[in-house]
Design a protein around this nucleic acid. Structure first.
Length: 800
DNA sequence: AAAGACTTCGTTTTT
DNA sequence: CGAAGTCTTT
């Protein structure tokens, strides 16, 4: 760590009033500058109460608060995440946006449940309207400040009723109505409601603007439209606004982040001072060289150099293994060897991946090798079913209108309230505008309800009444009451089922965390505050860098952190860059943007490394339980330079590739479309929903295989059906390539992948009725099939 | 109504 | 392959 401030760092620290943009490259000492700046402001006599620092994660907020506290003990500057800040504001002014201050913050599960119920009440098919997709669409609208009113108004302008219109005009308003009925908000609402509040109440906006005279926003490139508006509103009259960020690690475009916000800061605030921090104090020259090579491929980018006076360091290592298992095992044993040799501490090492499921194999291998590790993601603590159940009880107590919570607990643990009883209850509750519990209290008045269910409902109402009476002081006490009064988890203690023991452990851990919460006590430490805290924790918050463990996390979660040794696994096409990041985009331009975001994501991973960086990849990888041949990441070519060590790659491969052909030997490698690949339809690699249809055969029922596609069927897929349903990679390629090039993709001996049959090899290329045909023999079941070259769902499996 | 067998479905990233 | 959802039995 540098000891003195550089000239540029000093400028940022010393800047006083007015707008300031700090463009901080990776490892440029940004946090240090921010915290010192805050300390300097206090020194100049600015009251900490007049300052507000906004971050994206609790972890960043805590880190910043801690460092300021170290510089200026007792200063107590308010550092908060956007969401937490908005939640606090909303509690205070809830009524202005039609809420009550005890509103609940819904999580993704609650949202999905709400959407499902909206769908069934609107008589819409949830297979056609996938709740997850709808959720994403609604979230996107909210991030872009499209309120349900605006969305609904747009309904009349649309004649067609396609997916988008239905979601916008019907589901979104219905969903929002139900949220309100539950006195609840979703994550996006926290921001959206605050924007409404600030824009709809000028006096309040002005008051807050004057209250927060110095505002600081970290990671400004990640702000979405809502956040942008909030900042504008709070820094309007008194624009003492300091934002820090860097366009290069902007990786949240998919959740509405607008990289433009930082790019246009200077035009938003014409008298803004701009400070660039470009010197990197973190990484070796070799690592930065790779980062630089990579990011310079982004077209939409202000050119910027990465420079450091640090040592050159080891080459960046590129390893290729046969399988994901080899990859995990080799990494685990390599880490173990390094630590035993005394080179590093466990906590020096981090492993990053693009998708959470990749952690599984790694975790298993680390376990086998006795490597202590912690995972920042996956099933986070507050996501566990038993923890959510407990919290649902608390939520129901705090906000009885919260129907998602009520539905979760009404028959959990089982107390004789089944599906039909529940339906009657809901109908009754809706009719009389009651909460579920109020309705249960009046069970005797519900028509068509027999004795047993009535009794069950009354008993439930009684339990909740008791619990409500206990909701006065300690949250931990209340949780214990929930456990004892509901008999939740009874029997787990005696069980020798490992899973049940674990559940018990989780419940006890929740009680413990509630106890700690109680002990921090003081004002405002209410049940409401506890619930808010649990709703707004992130996976990352539970990571402890001093735990003496190897840390596993997604590339997204890695932002803002640094580790001496970094492994990035699954460095393969369709993983990094991720296929779904791009082929779900609507047009080529969006795809290009998405690709650039994937590049920035890898850039984030690379620039986390201080001393050593390992990129690992495999020849085959399991997906949905089936092995698929991988394709080299297009980024692999992009980072090609002297600082990359390929020898590791060849060695690890040789021993692992037992009994199998080595497929990336240069003679056999083939071109995979590189930049033009944007027009490539990735639907070929991942068949669209319902595409299994083409492969259905008349004698399907004779199959003894449970798969949708009979493994033993000798039928050739019907080319007509194929044509109608799938636009394949090959077909699209063909549309812009010469016929001969298509054929080249399917030359005899080439490896191809079929969405159903898996990997195969082209054994024959021929012609049939003016059409180019390919005969492929698949590894699986020794199957041989004939396809029309430009109409088949075959993807060439190349390695370059 | 509850527990178990069977089937289908899916897998980006997160506050 | 594993989770979640549906159907079947008690």
């Amino acid at each position: 760590m540098q000891s003195r401030l550089t000239e540029f760092q000093r400028q940022a620290v010393e800047h006083f009033e007015g707008p300031l943009l700090v463009l901080a490259g990776p490892g440029s000492g940004k946090t240090r500058v921010i915290t010192q700046r805050i300390a300097r402001l206090i020194e100049r006599g600015v009251s900490p109460r007049r300052m507000l620092a906004l971050t994206f994660t609790n972890k960043a907020a805590e880190e910043m608060a801690h460092r300021v506290e170290t510089l200026v003990p007792g200063s107590r500057v308010w550092v908060s995440t956007f969401h937490r800040f908005c939640a606090r504001l909303l509690r205070e002014y809830a009524e202005l946006v039609g809420l009550h201050s005890n509103f609940t913050i819904f999580d993704t599960d609650d949202q999905r449940g709400l959407i499902k119920r909206s769908l069934s009440d609107l008589d819409l098919d949830s297979t056609q309207y996938a709740p997850a997709k709808i959720n994403a669409a609604i979230s996107k609208m909210k991030n872009d400040l499209i309120t349900p009113d605006i969305a609904e108004a747009a309904r009349h302008e649309q004649a067609t009723m396609d997916f988008k219109t239905v979601v916008t005009a019907r589901i979104y308003p219905e969903y929002q109505k139900r949220l309100r009925e539950s006195n609840a908000v979703d994550f996006d609402d926290l921001l959206l409601h605050v924007v409404t509040l600030l824009q709809g109440t000028p006096e309040l906006r002005s008051e807050l603007d004057h209250q927060y005279q110095f505002i600081l926003v970290d990671e400004y490139q990640d702000t979405n439209k809502a956040q942008y508006e909030i900042i504008r509103a709070l820094a309007h009259d008194i624009p003492n606004l300091c934002v820090t960020g860097d366009p290069d690690p902007s990786i949240y475009g998919w959740r509405g982040a607008r990289i433009d916000n930082i790019l246009r800061f200077e035009s938003d605030y014409p008298d803004a001072q701009v400070v660039r921090l470009e010197e990197n104090f973190r990484s070796t020259k070799a690592i930065l060289r790779v980062a630089d090579k990579l990011i310079e491929h982004n077209v939409h980018r202000k050119a910027k150099r990465l420079q450091t006076d640090n040592e050159s360091g080891d080459d960046v290592k590129l390893h290729r293994f046969w399988s994901g298992k080899d990859e995990a095992e080799e990494i685990a044993s390599q880490i173990r060897r390094d630590i035993e040799a005394g080179v590093w501490e466990w906590s020096d090492v981090a492993i990053f991946y693009r998708v959470n499921w990749l952690s599984r194999e790694i975790e298993l291998a680390l376990g086998r090798n006795h490597v202590p590790y912690q995972v920042a993601a996956g099933l986070a603590f507050y996501e566990r079913a038993e923890v959510k159940d407990m919290l649902a009880y608390l939520r129901t107590i705090e906000n009885p209108a919260d129907r998602a919570a009520g539905l979760r607990i009404i028959n959990n643990p089982p107390r004789g309230i089944g599906k039909s009883t529940l339906e009657k209850l809901i109908r009754f509750a809706d009719k009389h505008e009651l909460t579920l519990i109020e309705a249960a209290e009046h069970a005797k008045e519900i028509p068509e309800l027999s004795a047993a269910p009535t009794k069950a409902l009354l008993a439930f109402a009684e339990v909740m009444k008791h619990l409500r009476d206990k909701a006065t002081g300690s949250v931990a006490e209340l949780l214990r009451s929930v456990l004892s009064e509901t008999s939740y988890g009874d029997g787990w203690r005696e069980s020798d089922d490992e899973q049940e023991q674990q559940r018990l452990g989780n419940v006890l851990e929740l009680v413990l965390s509630a106890q700690q919460f109680d002990e921090q006590a003081g004002e405002g430490r209410s049940l409401q505050a506890f619930l808010e805290t649990t709703s707004l924790v992130s996976d990352l918050d539970l990571v402890d860098e001093s735990a003496g463990k190897v840390t596993l996390m997604t590339l997204h979660a890695a932002k803002g952190l640094e580790f001496p040794v970094v492994y990035i696994v699954g460095f393969e096409q369709n993983l990094i860059p991720h296929e779904r990041a791009m082929y779900e985009q609507e047009d080529a331009r969006r795809m290009q943007m998405a690709l650039e975001e994937e590049r920035r994501l890898l850039f984030v991973g690379v620039t986390r490394a201080m001393k050593q960086l390992h990129l690992t990849t495999t020849v085959e990888r399991y997906s949905f339980g089936r092995p698929l041949r991988t394709i080299r990441s297009q980024f692999e070519t992009e980072i090609e330079c002297e600082e990359i060590d390929h020898t590791a790659l060849r060695q690890t491969l040789g021993s692992a590739a037992f009994g199998k052909p080595i497929p990336f030997d240069d003679e056999h490698s083939q071109e995979v479309p590189n930049n033009d690949w944007l027009d490539f339809d990735f639907g070929a690699a991942t068949p669209p929903k319902g595409s299994g249809v083409f492969f259905e055969s008349a004698d399907e029922e004779t199959s003894d295989d449970s798969n949708a596609f009979p493994a033993n069927s000798k039928k050739t897929p019907d080319p007509v059906a194929l044509k109608s349903k799938v636009t394949t990679g090959a077909a699209l390629l063909r549309s812009q390539a010469e016929d001969s090039e298509v054929t080249a993709l399917f030359a005899v001996g080439n490896a191809v992948r079929h969405p159903r049959y898996g990997l195969g090899e082209v054994v024959e290329v021929g012609r049939m009725m003016k059409r180019q045909t390919v005969v492929v023999r698949f590894d699986q079941d020794d199957r041989t099939e004939t396809f029309v070259a430009d109409k088949c769902p075959l993807t060439p499996v190349g390695l370059r």
